[in-house]
Write a protein that binds this DNA or RNA. Structure first.
Lengths: 176, 176
DNA sequence: CGCACATGATACATTATGTCTCATCTAAGT
DNA sequence: ACTTAGATGAGACATAATGTATCATGTGCG
């Protein structure tokens, strides 16, 4: 049923996720869908709560900070370029009015900035990034434009874009 | 009717915008709503197409580039902190599956980056910004984090955040 | 006044929604 | 192999929503 829900969501948007259509799409009786999720919104919240975080790539170990950040952002962008972008767009449109969806959104999107901040913090402590760097802000500056392109412009996020982003954002804060 | 639609959208989200509820909320017969917008989505598309752009502030004239950018971003953030944030979130959630909403989204969000790029381009030509600056990318770097905070974190965008954003993003590219 | 046009009110058929019952199936324990 | 608890399928049912049609009323305008 959740597979069918994900399919419906990706194909036709959140409004298509109804008890009836989930039942039809998954070959299950309508009553069964009601038993699991009495409220229509519960189906979506359940699906979205189980959705994987937007990226999970463990930052590779000994490489220079620029490489590690670039790798992290690329796996992140790959998820956004795929199905993750649509799911994220749906969540943003729902989270404004549904606290449960917002919680799921927080869980889904918090891991990325966190590991990026950790990466930057590691760069500071190992002396490759300026000490007065605000890791949280720098993380926003790297991730924000990527979301912007995907969600507002519906543009694909290319490796070249990420390279330019990293070099102009992180570049000026690097120490020799 | 469109006022009632806006109210419904802001209060209860896109799914609450139905012929019936618009009719009730605006004190109009249900048939009248059907006459104007035979399809449910038409109501929202019509409303969103008429929505003002996200910011309109004409950049003040002779001030230094940093001041002008900061002013622009502040009026932009003010709209996002208000009702514009919810409307934008709804549009992002709909634009993924509705081309008309996406067109409206483009019109709504294109003016901001454009005037920001123009501002940066002016800064380059008047010699206060480095000549190798990519105005489009710099614009994304300034606007992206603001969208990020509003849409994903549901955080208010403070003047202090914008100040830090401008100083760390635009600062390194300024010429004496 | 007369006309074009939008609206209100209502009826109607169709579909969706939500709840209920009961027979059937399945997995697990005895 | 038997029993039982729990889940499912199939369908009935009432209610609400949706979409269309009709006709009387109102309003602005030449």
């Amino acid at each position: 049923m959740l597979d069918a829900t994900r399919e419906l969501l990706s194909e036709s948007g959140p409004e298509a996720v109804t008890h009836l259509r989930v039942a039809e799409a998954s070959g299950v009786a309508r009553a069964t869908v009601y038993r699991h999720w009495p409220d229509r919104a519960d189906i979506l919240v359940d699906l979205l709560s189980r959705s994987a975080a937007l990226h999970l790539s463990p930052p590779p170990p000994g490489l220079p900070i620029t490489e590690r950040v670039t790798t992290l952002l690329r796996t992140f962008a790959a998820t956004l370029n795929g199905d993750g972008g649509r799911i994220l767009a749906a969540m943003i449109g729902l989270a404004e009015w549904d606290d449960d969806v917002f919680s799921a959104l927080e869980r889904m999107t918090s891991r990325g900035p966190k590991s990026l901040r950790d990466l930057i913090a590691a760069g500071i402590s190992e002396g490759s990034v300026q000490t007065d760097t605000d890791a949280g802000l720098l993380s926003d500056q790297l991730i924000g434009p990527i979301y912007l392109r995907r969600l507002l412009y519906h543009d694909e996020i290319t490796d070249g874009y990420i390279d330019r982003l990293v070099s102009t954002t992180l570049g000026p804060r690097l120490l020799a």
